[in-house]
């Protein structure tokens, strides 16, 4: 991110310009993409449990290819097996027949069989700090007004904590995410912040914070950084592929893409003042 700022400085100072260009890219073998999420929202005790399977496609193509007909289940630490079934309305979306219970730090094993390949990944249901409050204030970027929203939380002392902030709502142009680690704030108040423009009173923003494992933190951090920075030359980092926490048990080089995340979630709906 800091290096992106350096690129921006260069853009500001000189007559540099950006323009879309046509380039030819190669196509790789299609890979299975696994987006598995078990979310337990601590404030409402509601849960979101789903596994979305798809197939990677050519970079410039505009198609989402669901992976249909897979066998999906999650086994908890007590050997309870939760079988998922594919929804009729959304091919490639799988939901559990029975709800996986809200047991913090419990290890969960994801198992998928798709086209004779067996995939597995593990994650604990990671606890998270509560979003205690949200504050808003006006800030100016190059004389243009923006509204900054900070979501404040308290970091638990003497333990490593990693989280993932998600900001969603009308005043924001798109879903925005940030990761947090307590490297420089162990045991203190910390915040996740976002900027909105053209906001109106009573607009609603949903703040969420997900608990992450250390591996999850690195995965999401890289995902967000690369999504913002893109790849290239110059002061950009050399881009890398995102290796998640799911492996292919079959004798194959076809490593799956995606991540299995199990998180406690703190959620706060904020009405813009």
């Amino acid at each position: 991110m800091k290096k992106t700022l350096f690129v921006l400085i260069g853009v500001f100072i000189f007559s540099s310009c950006e323009a879309p260009i046509e380039v030819e890219v190669d196509d790789s073998e299609p890979l299975l993409v696994i987006e598995a999420q078990i979310n337990w929202i601590k404030e409402t005790r509601k849960t979101e449990q789903k596994v979305v399977l798809s197939i990677s496609s050519s970079y410039f193509s505009n198609t989402f290819k669901p992976a249909i007909g897979a066998e999906v289940n999650i086994v908890d630490g007590d050997e309870n097996r939760y079988v998922f079934s594919e929804t009729i309305e959304s091919p490639g979306h799988y939901i559990p027949l029975d709800t996986i219970p809200y047991v913090l730090n419990q290890e969960l094993h994801l198992n998928i069989t798709y086209k004779d390949q067996k995939y597995t990944g593990s994650e604990n249901l990671i606890p998270v700090s509560t979003i205690d409050s949200v504050k808003q204030k006006s800030v100016f970027f190059f004389k243009k007004e923006r509204t900054q929203f900070n979501a404040y939380c308290m970091d638990p002392k003497n333990e490593r904590n990693f989280t993932f902030f998600e900001f969603k709502g009308e005043p924001l142009e798109a879903l925005e995410c940030k990761v947090y680690s307590d490297d420089f704030s162990d045991g203190f108040i910390y915040d996740g912040f976002i900027f909105g423009k053209n906001i109106k009173v009573n607009d609603e923003i949903r703040f969420r914070q997900y608990g992450l494992s250390k591996r999850g933190y690195h995965y999401w951090k890289l995902l967000i950084e690369q999504n913002i920075q893109g790849s290239g030359g110059g002061a950009f980092q050399i881009p890398v592929n995102l290796n998640g926490n799911i492996k292919n048990l079959s004798p194959s080089n076809a490593y799956p893409l995606g991540y299995f995340r199990a998180s406690e979630v703190s959620e706060l709906y904020y009405l813009v003042k």
Binding site: D27, S28, L31, L175, L223, G233, P239, N241, L257
Partner: peptide
Amino acid sequence: QPITYPNAQYEFSGFSIPNYASRNSS
């Protein structure tokens, strides 16, 4: 200059993620 191009993409968690070919192969 050698750089790394994507050779696939996928949808994940609301993002369109590029998957890259081997390093600096373009």
